[in-house]
């Protein structure tokens, strides 16, 4: 909140009769109402803080777990150009994880603590990454559909009420939109390639379409956190609204790709000016969420293993830093590490 803002006016007029807490709450409410940013040192309700930590942690975890299905194809990328693009993309995801864990740190929750919760299964990551990448075309489908859905979800977060999260999202969205175009371009090359390549692309789209629609979360009337998050302006649009927006974007793109979407009920609704589409299988969504998806165990196991096997490295860096406190730099050398 900047100087001379709605919050300060509210703070000044709230009076002391109701106690300092009420005045702070009023200032917070006024700032949110005036579309001002809440910053780390500002007072905020505990529930707002907790909700942000939950959402940012889930987002950060999704970035680092999301590296796995794509890294699965780095060593088999079929051309050096594609290999470079894919490595850079997976690297970006690690970078996004870093921004988001850092943003969460501004709320007083460290990366180690959040990773421990992820490894213990106490915090979630996006269910989409519990599906396997079975062919090279899956790399394209993830870029086009999964990153496309993520962007639809995340662009409004650039205006989220919490400053550090909003600013991290501006950078992330720029890179995500690059990834989305790369995925689309990969699928286009396959679709226009040999019959076997075309079939590979269609098969990937068939498998990733419905899980991508589920990325927007349960329907509005069944979404646990939606109403409060919207009131706090952490969230700006409902799940169903964003899902509809995504479908409307994808239908013409699929046509341009020469690929079909695996939903016979998709048709243009003149009256609504939007596309109708078929019913989503929420049982599958719930099952994957509960841990019964094809890769839940595998993803979490790999994450835990990397963390456990890296423990001696992190410990060495910490001990070294303690031994060489003056001018030794950070425990983990970060060099020019660009994301």
């Amino acid at each position: 909140m900047a100087a001379g803002t709605a919050s300060q006016t509210a703070q000044a007029t709230a009076g002391s009769a109701e106690g300092p807490e009420a005045a702070l709450q009023a200032a917070f409410d006024a700032a949110v109402a005036a579309d001002e940013r809440i910053e780390p040192r500002d007072w905020m309700p505990d529930a707002y803080r907790a909700s942000l930590v939950r959402q940012m942690a889930q987002h950060a975890h999704s970035e680092i777990i999301g590296m796995q299905p794509e890294a699965n194809w780095i060593t088999r990328a079929p051309s050096l150009r594609r290999k470079a693009i894919l490595m850079a993309k997976v690297q970006d995801e690690a970078g996004h994880g870093l921004y988001l864990y850092s943003a969460a740190e501004t709320l007083g929750t460290g990366r180690e603590e959040l990773l421990d919760k992820l490894h213990a299964g106490r915090q979630r990551y996006s269910s989409i990454f519990n599906y396997p990448t079975l062919t090279w075309a899956d790399v394209g489908a993830i870029g086009w559909l999964v990153d496309g859905a993520a962007i639809t979800n995340q662009v409004p977060l650039c205006r989220c009420s919490y400053g550090p999260y909003a600013r991290a999202m501006v950078r992330i969205c720029k890179e995500e939109s690059f990834h989305q175009r790369q995925g689309y371009e990969l699928l286009l090359a396959l679709s226009n390639g040999t019959p076997a390549q075309h079939e590979m692309a269609q098969d990937a789209v068939n498998r990733w379409w419905w899980p991508s629609l589920m990325m927007f979360g349960p329907p509005d009337d069944a979404s646990a956190h939606s109403a409060q998050s919207m009131a706090w302006k952490i969230k700006r649009h409902s799940n169903d609204e964003l899902r509809q927006r995504f479908v409307d974007i994808c239908v013409p793109q699929a046509e341009a790709l020469g690929l079909s979407l695996p939903d016979p009920d998709i048709r243009w609704n003149e009256e609504r000016g939007r596309h109708d589409f078929g019913a989503i299988d929420w049982t599958e969504f719930q099952e994957v969420l509960k841990g019964n998806g094809p890769c839940n165990e595998q993803r979490l196991d790999q994450r835990r293993r990397a963390h456990e096997e890296g423990a001696w490295v992190r410990e060495a860096a910490a001990v070294y830093a303690r031994k060489h406190t003056s001018g030794a730099g950070p425990a983990v050398p970060n060099g020019k590490a660009t994301a």
Binding site: I64, M67, Q68, M87, A94, G95, A306, G310, A337, T338
Partner: peptide, 20 residues
């Protein structure tokens, strides 16, 4: 590139990929 997703710390995911 084989390290992707297996590095001991997130900063090294970025660094090793960068070198690769």
């Amino acid at each position: 590139g084989e390290w992707a997703g297996h590095a001991p710390v997130l900063e090294e995911e970025v660094a090793l990929a960068n070198i690769a």
